[in-house]
Amino acid sequence: MIALGLPPEASTIAPRVDLLLYAVTIVTGGVAIAIFVTMIVFGIRYRAGSKVKRAENVPEAQARARRRVETAWTLIPFALFLASFAWAARLYMVRADAPANSMELFVVAKQWMWKLQHPGGQREIDEMHVPRGQPIKLVMTSQDVIHSFFVPAFRLKQDVLPGRYTEMWFTATKTGRFHLFCAEYCGTDHAHMGGDVIVMEPAEFQRWLNAHAATQSMAARGEDLFRHLGCSGCHGENASVHAPNLAGVYGRPVPLSDGTTVVADERYIRDSILLPRKEVAAGYAPIMPSFTGQIGEDDILDLIAYIKSLASTKERPK
């Protein structure tokens, strides 16, 4: 609707957010207007000079009125608030649950640019090309301070933190070019840390992918890194060191030496590379060195992509 000046609705969730926005606007606006009208009516009617009939004993009249209205005007707002709370919370939970068939896209934020990588290895800066109608899951991290990935046309925003992965998913419904902003203040050029989201028809998107094809996919790049960084020396098939087999590990529960269990997701893999002593797999000695400072966020994402690509195999990587 033009009345509120909302940006275009370009994702599946956008019209649902807008509907809630209109409902809340109408209800709160209605209540506000009712209050203002009452104030004006009382203000004129009971002005000092007016001859209107007033109670002989105002405190007593107030006490009588209170018994009638006070419960009502506590409970009615409470009911309205509950409704708004529940509606908004449900929608918020939808936002947290990416569909299983989502296509993954990887985002690394740094002062003051957005770096994106497609699974096929295509890289972009300050632009994000996505196909219409396909659920997309962004896996995001920051190289320095906190940023926030904000696409007004999608009605979505998610802070991007250093040291961990945050996720956000959407399905674009409109082709076109939409604003991408950084919404968390991040220093000097915060206002210029933005770009465009470009939503394309799937066929067109495929052509774009082909035209920008990288020499290697993320997983292939990760495989190279796996060898160059020496990971394969312990985790590979000819390893003499007793180290966990990474094939098939992604997405599975891993028993830890302290008796607990974690699911081997992106966070676990990332932490295992940078903080290997934090969660040691059960039955293994804590001998892995940390790669902190030797490896960038992009490289970690490539390594994760490689380990994910081994998810369906049982063979030790070469």
Partner: peptide, 22 residues
């Protein structure tokens, strides 16, 4: 009153996702 009412927008989770930091 206006400030309080618009606070309800921000307390509403899904609306806050769009409106926060704007």
């Amino acid at each position: 009153t206006v400030g309080g009412m618009t606070g309800l927008f921000l307390a509403s989770l899904a609306l806050d996702v769009h409106l926060t930091d704007t």
